[in-house]
Amino acid sequence: MADVHVPSSLDEVFRLLSDEPSATLFAGGTDVMVRSSPDMRERGPFLCLERVEELRGIHGSATEVRIGAATTLSEVIASPVIADLFPLLREALRHVGAPAVRNMGTLGGNICTASPAGDSLPPLYILGAEVELRSLKGRRRMPIDAFITGPGRTQLEEGEVLCAVVIGKEQGFNFHHFEKVGQRKAMAISVASLAFGAETRRDGTIVKARCAFGSVAPTVFTSRLLNDTFAGNTLNTAVLDRAVAIIREGVSPISDIRASMEYRRQVAGNLVMRLEGAGKDR
């Protein structure tokens, strides 16, 4: 059977990685251990990041919040900092799996899996999150939308570890909305999801808005044209109709056992309709 290493520091991680460059990294195991067939498990080796101190916890600076990649989804949800600054992220994470899955799954894991259905991704796109990558060669930072290149594909290089997610504190959103469509109300893989953040005036006029969709394209779907459609308008029927058209035109969903392409396209558009009249009086 394969070996499993559970290092407690990044130095140890890099030492192990230079010895065994082919090692599979995982943190909570809610993806890697589920996907690993028993015989794949016999090949290994595995490197479990759940105890790496540098990858854990949520720390704020004057301008940014840094979430360690091995911070569990439950820990992110429970964080008062996150609840205060990024309620959209918190809301989305509450829709992942069920408590035990959130107790095991980590934010870094959700990003590295890079599933089109990853529930953390649409809010992270909206919040302009950046990922911090480290290797023996050094560290680099890049926006999450550059990091994720396709379904299950990222810019992560051999010997490199995703260490943290960094989000700017100043987002300027006073209105947020998240909705996930799944086949049931828990333990569901997203069939389509919408994350929406906006700065609105008292009368509901949008100053700026950002929209991101999960599960309706190879990666999270965003559109500047769509975001611009909202600016200067209230969330009225005419604006939303325009938004729906842009969304249905822009998404590129697939059909699978959970839903058809047609349904995903239809429902992606429908999800913004729910916003009608929202954002007023805040």
């Binding site: 070996d3 499993v4 290493h5 559970v6 195991g29 809610t30 251990m33 589920v34 595995f46 479990c48 759940e50 439950s74 069920a98 408590p99 035990a100 899955v101 107790n103 095991m104 333990m187």
Partner: peptide, 27 residues
């Protein structure tokens, strides 16, 4: 595969799924 919860255990007071945990993680 972590879908049903029948294998739930408490790990340092936190509910986790023992069917997708390796022995090494018990240490």
């Amino acid at each position: 595969s972590g879908e049903c919860g029948a294998c739930s255990i408490l790990v340092d007071d936190v509910v986790k799924l023992s069917c997708i945990m390796t022995a090494a993680q018990l240490e």
